[in-house]
Computed example of a mutant assay.
Amino acid sequence: MTEPAYVAETRTAYDTVAESYAETLKDALDESTWDRAVLAAFAEQVGKSGRVGDLGCGPGRLTGHLAALGLDVFGVDLSPGMVEVARRTHPHLRFDVGSMAALDLPDGSLAGALAWYSLIHTPLERLPALVAELARVLEPGGRLLTAFQVGDERRRITNAYGHDVEADAYRLRPDFVADLFTAAGLVVDVRLVREAEEHEKTPQAYLIARKPLV
């Protein structure tokens, strides 16, 4: 099957910025009370009884954070460059190269899934299938947490973290994402929108959903 052009563009862009991205964002969690609070709530809900996938993990900064919170967590990312940085930075954790759209995981195998700013490069018409894949790998009662920039537009990114790149990114409406989760059979328990912090251009949203027990 021919790979969609947006997938190749996204992979190349993140391979290009991997080192700079990791260095720039290494302390970002220290600067956002809300990010830490939402991740802590997610970790508490998931508990320590099952595996958690950080899907679109980048250099593994949140994978490491969730591991420090006591979760049995691993990372998956489309970018081999990002995975290389993640493995070097967190040698005690597992990281795999892979696609969120076709996860190499059995049905119902995860107690939790994190999609932290990792839905944003998928065209809107392809998001239902992507969210259905995330729902597939969750066990009954499992939680899915996503975060994204709020808006209703496609942006063409040509420079990021000091590098020339070519990739699209989508700002998303919380109601739109919630509807995607509902259509995939998930129940949305939390919707939180916060105003932009100093370095951000738009409000940011967090959604936590769960897979019903029956």
Results as ranks from 00 to 15, higher is better:
42 F>S: 11
125 E>D: 15
135 A>Q: 04
138 L>K: 13
75 G>L: 03
158 T>Q: 05
178 A>W: 05
101 A>M: 08
174 P>D: 13
210 R>N: 11
64 G>L: 01
11 R>L: 06
102 A>C: 12
3 E>N: 02
64 G>F: 03
8 A>I: 08
21 Y>A: 02
191 R>Y: 04
200 E>G: 07
175 D>T: 13
208 I>H: 00
99 S>T: 06
177 V>L: 04
4 P>A: 08
68 A>C: 04
28 A>N: 12
30 D>Q: 03
49 S>A: 13
76 V>I: 15
109 S>V: 12
138 L>V: 15
99 S>E: 10
155 R>G: 02
65 H>F: 08
176 F>H: 15
211 K>S: 05
125 E>G: 06
103 L>E: 14
164 D>C: 04
40 A>F: 07
143 R>L: 13
171 R>P: 06
164 D>E: 14
129 A>D: 14
86 A>C: 12
180 L>R: 10
90 H>W: 10
8 A>V: 10
124 L>S: 08
26 K>H: 08
36 R>S: 09
9 E>W: 07
91 P>F: 00
15 D>F: 07
97 V>P: 00
185 G>F: 14
212 P>S: 13
177 V>S: 01
47 G>S: 07
153 E>Y: 04
53 G>R: 07
27 D>H: 07
155 R>F: 06
70 G>I: 09
147 A>K: 00
201 K>S: 15
134 L>V: 14
90 H>R: 10
109 S>Q: 08
70 G>H: 09
202 T>S: 12
167 A>L: 12
82 M>I: 10
213 L>M: 07
144 L>W: 07
63 T>R: 03
125 E>L: 11
189 D>Q: 12
169 A>S: 12
160 A>P: 00
80 P>L: 08
134 L>G: 09
123 P>G: 12
111 A>K: 02
112 G>H: 03
31 E>V: 07
208 I>D: 00
108 G>W: 07
113 A>T: 12
150 V>L: 11
111 A>H: 04
137 V>E: 03
186 L>V: 10
51 R>P: 05
208 I>A: 02
114 L>E: 06
120 I>E: 01
42 F>E: 12
173 R>Y: 02
10 T>C: 11
2 T>G: 10
53 G>D: 11
119 L>H: 00
183 A>D: 15
107 D>S: 14
201 K>L: 12
175 D>P: 05
72 D>G: 04
51 R>D: 06
83 V>I: 14
112 G>C: 11
198 E>C: 06
2 T>E: 14
167 A>R: 09
41 A>W: 13
207 L>T: 09
25 L>D: 05
22 A>I: 01
71 L>S: 03
128 P>T: 12
138 L>N: 14
176 F>G: 10
69 L>I: 11
25 L>Y: 14
94 R>L: 14
167 A>P: 00
115 A>P: 01
103 L>Q: 12
21 Y>D: 06
21 Y>F: 15
94 R>G: 13
188 V>M: 09
119 L>C: 00
22 A>W: 00
